[in-house]
Amino acid sequence: MLTVGANAAKVESQLSSGELACPDCGDALGPWGWARVRVLRGGSVPVVVRPRRARCVGCGVSHVLLPVFALVRRADLAEVIGAALAAKAAGAGARAIAVGLGRPVETVRGWLRRFAGRAEDVRVAFTVLLVDTGVDPVPPAPAATPFADAVAAVVGAAVAAASRWPDVGEVSPWRLACAVSRGRLLAPSWP
């Protein structure tokens, strides 16, 4: 699995010209078919994606090129899940969040439980990113809960990245979180 940009034409161009590197060995990736079609729930209109597959010319391993707005094994856009995480950090409960987002309560509870189970690891990873990338980094002040600390670290890392690279400021903190975690923010295998 490799997280790539949201512009499919640009990703295709990068793939054809050998600009994308294998996350395992660093060799160039080449086109190798398509993954199954996925429908991601977003705001008012579902987003249909068919992720590209690529194969490494060096080690021969294939990878799905997941757009930066999608998380592995999740049917909702990163911004939707991020909104739920931010609402929880602000003190909202799973039922209220689910109603506000129009999602099943069990789905929202699953997101919140998975994130809560790794909140300290997420906080550490994104605080390190914040300090390493920020022009004049200011780590977030301690929040009321470890969950809120982790959400603050994600948002703080996005602000720090935008201070160094202005184009990153056009990307939501949750897309940045997808890119940093390689789409695995809520997957069992990260961090």
Rank of each mutant, 00 (worst) to 15 (best):
P67R: 09
A86F: 00
R113H: 10
R74T: 09
S163W: 02
A70D: 05
A116F: 07
A150Y: 11
A84L: 08
A35C: 07
R118S: 06
H63D: 02
V180G: 02
A125D: 10
A78K: 04
D167T: 10
I97V: 12
V37W: 00
L112V: 11
A28R: 14
A35Y: 11
A83I: 00
A96K: 10
A84D: 01
R109I: 01
V138W: 00
D149E: 10
A157P: 05
V154K: 02
V154H: 03
R182N: 15
P142K: 06
E79M: 05
A84R: 04
R114D: 03
L66D: 00
L129M: 12
A153S: 10
L29K: 05
S181I: 06
V4G: 11
R53P: 08
A54M: 06
A9K: 09
S181V: 07
P142C: 04
L130C: 11
P142L: 06
V159G: 02
R95L: 14
V180S: 01
P173F: 11
D121W: 02
T3C: 05
P191M: 02
G60Y: 01
C59A: 04
V37Y: 00
L40E: 04
S13F: 09
G26H: 01
R38K: 14
L130Q: 07
R95W: 14
S44R: 12
G42V: 07
V72R: 14
I97D: 07
P67I: 04
A148Y: 13
R114I: 07
G58E: 12
V72A: 08
A179M: 03
A83Y: 10
V99A: 13
A116R: 10
A92K: 13
A152F: 09
G156T: 04
A89W: 05
V49H: 01
R95D: 15
G58D: 11
P51R: 03
V159H: 12
P188K: 13
R74D: 15
W32T: 00
D132T: 05
P188Q: 12
S163P: 00
A153R: 03
R103K: 13
F126C: 13
V72N: 03
A143E: 14
W111R: 12
R114H: 09
G183R: 02
V11T: 08
D136F: 12
G30L: 14
V151W: 03
E170L: 13
A116L: 06
A94C: 08
V68G: 13
E19G: 04
F115E: 05
R109V: 04
C22N: 11
G169I: 08
F115P: 07
V135E: 07
A144K: 11
P67W: 09
G30C: 10
G58Y: 11
P166N: 01
A162C: 03
G33N: 03
P67G: 06
A141K: 14
S181E: 07
V138C: 06
T107F: 03
L129K: 10
P104S: 15
L85K: 14
C178G: 01
A90E: 15
